[in-house]
Amino acid sequence: MTNFLLHLLLIFGLAPLLPGVIARTKAVIAGRKGQPLTQLYRDLWKLFRKDLVLSRTTTWIFRAGPLIGFAVPVLGALLLPFGPAAAPLSFTGDFVLYVYLFGLARFFTILAALDTGSSFEGMGAAREATFSILVEPTIFVAFIILVRISGDFSLNAMFGAVGSGKLLQSPTAFSLILTAFCLFIVLLAENCRIPFDDPNTHLELTMIHEVMVLDHSGPDFGLILYGTAMKLLLSSAMVVNLLLPVSGNLLLDLTAFCGALLLIAVAVGLVESAMARLRLIRVPQLLIGTTLLSFFGLILLLR
């Protein structure tokens, strides 16, 4: 029960902070003061009190998209261990559910985008569908590596096996570091960060994720922003779970876990400050490269 509450608290409470940290990191590097760290909390508060504008061409699918995009990360949070706090829902093979929950959310986001009939949203949907196919193998190879190390098929056991601080001494270290690196790239791709997508752009022809949600407004858009932030937290949590050693003291470990999440956000901000976006045509190459890298991690392990 504690774990249940803890997970919900973290996912609802901490998630909107991460985009704030990324934005602040970028602002500091660009020499600006930047928006308040809590900007997203305020935006959400504002959006949830707003009215909704719905296009006459849309159907219930258009409204279902944001709702499912919001519900899925919450469910995902219950399946994923947060550092020392084990996942409240756990069963053999839950990692498959975890991955395809997000597939479900993406499916509905894409349908909602197509539902508007706008050519921009159609383009964004096509891009999102293409790139997500290329991301999926990396995630599965990463999970296979964890399954191989832990000998278990539930996320709790898989991450639990690497989280107890023995990472760096074990012979699996190199393959785990590779996996963490691949998952970080997956984080950037899945959460539409530079170099894959530019969350700050206003150019409708270049966007991927942003263009799919152009027609959403008010509370629906709030749900989308909240859901995106939660997804970012979950992606970061996977990387942190791999790298952060556990001391045994719950409070200390939990603080370290939250700190590490923020550090990941800072790292995302640094990447965004240091490089330009890829040409859209190059994105598949990087994603396939990442897949190959994760395979390499698996080979190292099997050797």
Binding site: A30, D198, T206, R277
Partner: peptide, 16 residues
Amino acid sequence: LAGDVGFLPTAAYCGR
């Protein structure tokens, strides 16, 4: 141009 490719430093400096 820097802003469009998402290259933050030059976008920020040149803006100023």
